[in-house]
Amino acid sequence: MKALLIARRELAGYLRTLSGYIIIAAILALNGLFFNAFALGKAAERSATVLSNFFYYSSGFTIVASVFISMRLLAEERQAGTLSLLYSSPLKDRDIILGKYLAGLAFLAVYLVCTLYMPLLIMVNGKVSAGHIFAGYLGLLLLGSASLAVGTFGSALARNQVMAAILTAVMLVALILSWLVARIAEQPLANVFSALSLWNQHFPPFQAGLVHVRDVAYYLLLTYVALFAATRVLEARRWR
């Protein structure tokens, strides 16, 4: 499987360069800080509320992590001229995209595993169900997957990593803010914009420990569409 070969090389690239560690370390530090300062809160709260707060803040950091993890995926290959190696090898463009995305997802999973200590602390000191933690992490992984896919698309479009990060951030913010559009739009468009929003309607159930098929489907569909678009961009690049 060529995609796995590419994913393995890409993942090794993250782990061997400093940038991967810096991204994880910086976002972990901020995530921990927010957990301590805001999620735990000042007054005594129910453990489930604290856990929900943790997932609330973590969802934001997951999106940020996705932007930074995905920015190098294709833009760097283009910058370094290594894309022509992949282009001239017998593999499909979708394998390139899939491999890159899977490497990003694996690296994001490493980040998410590193955050596990926070819910475990809540579990030890309070009372929360493993199901709630599982649901929250599933949500984070799905949200991250969709963000990474959008990031892969942005990285395929951009000439360099900085541009890739900016493009991705703009697309993700637009997706997140589509609920604002929903508020001023009329029905039935309002429902469409609301359902399109990356966070507003789809993440809170996970945060509360609920897994709905429609939310899972939304994130998977967004992942697919973004990766499909990235593949088309890669194909179109062969023309110029």
């Binding site: 090389r9 090794a12 370094a80 290594t82 894309l83 022509s84 090898s89 017998p90």
Partner: peptide
């Protein structure tokens, strides 16, 4: 592509390998 080997004008190398 199976039958060709291509060296572009800048060698396509991954520095960290």
């Amino acid at each position: 592509r199976k039958r060709i080997g291509f060296l572009p004008d800048t060698p396509p190398l991954y520095d960290e390998m």
